[in-house]
Amino acid sequence: MAEQIARLDQGAWAAPGVVETVHPGVHRVPLPLPDDGLHAVNVYLLEGLAEDGRLVMIDGGWAVPEAREALEAGLAGIGRELGEISHILVTHIHRDHYTHAVELRRLLGSRVYLGAGERPGLELLHQLGSDEPAGSLDVLRRAGADELADRIGKMDHGGYDPEVWEAPDRWLGAGNVGFGAGELKVVPTPGHTKGHVVFLDERRGLLFAGDHVLPHITPSIGFELAEAGGRPLADYLDSLRLMTRYADTRLLPAHGPVADSAHTRVAELLAHHDDRLARSLAALGDEALDAHAVARRLAWTRRAVPFGELSAFNQMLAINETAAHLDVLVLEGLATVAHVVGVDRYCRVR
């Protein structure tokens, strides 16, 4: 998250009405995210995979009227129509990726696919009847930030509409998913969420990376609807390293412009987290501190914004990321953690 809340150099990538053919038969369309700092989410329209000549779409966008209008305009730009979308593959469960896919299914009869690791989060969302990030709020409480957790819990998180949070037609695990004329490799990449997946088009040398590998920013870690648990940063770092086991590809991200080399950006993200781990260890000093206290000692975004100047939502992301880094330091034997009255307190190992 360290850079997620930085202002992006929007350039042309997020401009409304854009349709970019990034490879023959592969088209990028940015859909607007009203009142969101990321401004837009890229969806990709793929020709040549479905045997009936229809379109496969990667990610769905956020279920708002502006997204539907932008998608229809993008389709018109390549001489296609909304009704030609037959399959929608979603990288993860966040509303700016999933909810519009479900609406399009209701409208068009398209099939929706989602990583199997997102199932617990979706089920919990229905149990709670709310799309608040329950897992992230639990991390806040274990980080000693009860007051912030209470404030975040009372916020409007976009409104819970069970119709746009319906289950997918198919839960995806690792392997290939085919559509008659072609297929994509599904690669689970937990970290940003537990069930995040990327889609690898090995024939065309393209990685549809969702929020796993972003060209300008670092994704938030462990931003969950599901219950908290595990070691999301350790999972994320492993998922980044996993990308280097495949041949290098062009990077087609969910936010930001297309980049020439996925491997180059993966190396940058790994170096970034090495730096944040070192800074988190230094911030511990000689005291026993919770993640909230450590986060307050760190600077945030490329502009080195003090923690106290962040919005409540971005303070939540900062604390979640700090806890994730501290947990990795524990795994590496550089820190210890003790659970004291429901709060995790970390100490540097001397």
Rank of each mutant, 00 (worst) to 15 (best):
D275L: 14
F313G: 05
C347V: 12
L45D: 07
M316K: 06
F313R: 13
H126Q: 01
G37P: 14
L200F: 13
G115I: 10
R95L: 09
F223E: 06
G180E: 13
A323G: 04
E69G: 03
G109P: 03
D260M: 11
C347P: 04
T264D: 11
V186E: 09
R68C: 00
L331C: 00
H192I: 01
D9T: 14
E224Y: 15
V197S: 12
A12H: 10
R303S: 11
P257Y: 03
A293N: 03
G182F: 10
L334P: 01
E66W: 04
H27W: 12
V328Y: 02
C347G: 04
L140I: 08
I319F: 06
V197D: 00
H100E: 03
F307S: 11
H273I: 01
D36G: 00
I217W: 02
P306L: 12
A6Y: 03
T99V: 07
H192G: 03
E268M: 09
Y346N: 06
A50T: 02
E66G: 05
G230Y: 04
L38A: 12
L104A: 01
E202N: 09
L124T: 03
Y246E: 11
P65K: 09
R265A: 11
R302W: 10
S261M: 12
E81W: 07
A291N: 14
I58G: 10
V337P: 06
H273K: 09
Y236N: 06
G308Q: 07
G79W: 03
G205E: 07
D150P: 02
L284D: 08
D156A: 08
D131A: 04
G342C: 06
Y346T: 06
A12N: 08
L200Q: 11
L82N: 06
P215C: 03
W300V: 02
D138R: 15
P306R: 07
P65W: 05
R68M: 02
H273F: 15
I217P: 10
G153C: 00
V177W: 05
L334N: 10
C347S: 14
V112S: 00
A267L: 09
T193Y: 03
S110F: 04
A149C: 08
V349R: 12
D260L: 11
G121Q: 01
D35Y: 10
A323D: 14
D59T: 15
G115N: 05
E227S: 05
L240C: 07
A143T: 05
G109Y: 08
A288V: 12
E321W: 08
D260T: 13
R151Y: 01
S280M: 07
L114F: 10
L233V: 01
A226I: 07
L55V: 03
H339V: 11
R348D: 03
L225D: 04
H27C: 07
G342P: 06
D211P: 06
P24E: 14
A6L: 08
Q10Y: 00
G333E: 04
G83T: 12
A143Y: 05
L71A: 04
E51V: 15
A14H: 13
G83M: 05
G121S: 00
A262Y: 05
P162C: 07
A145E: 09
F313M: 14
Q10W: 09
D238N: 12
R231F: 13
G180H: 10
V213I: 15
L125P: 02
L270S: 01
R119Y: 01
R95K: 07
R141A: 02
L89F: 08
N320M: 13
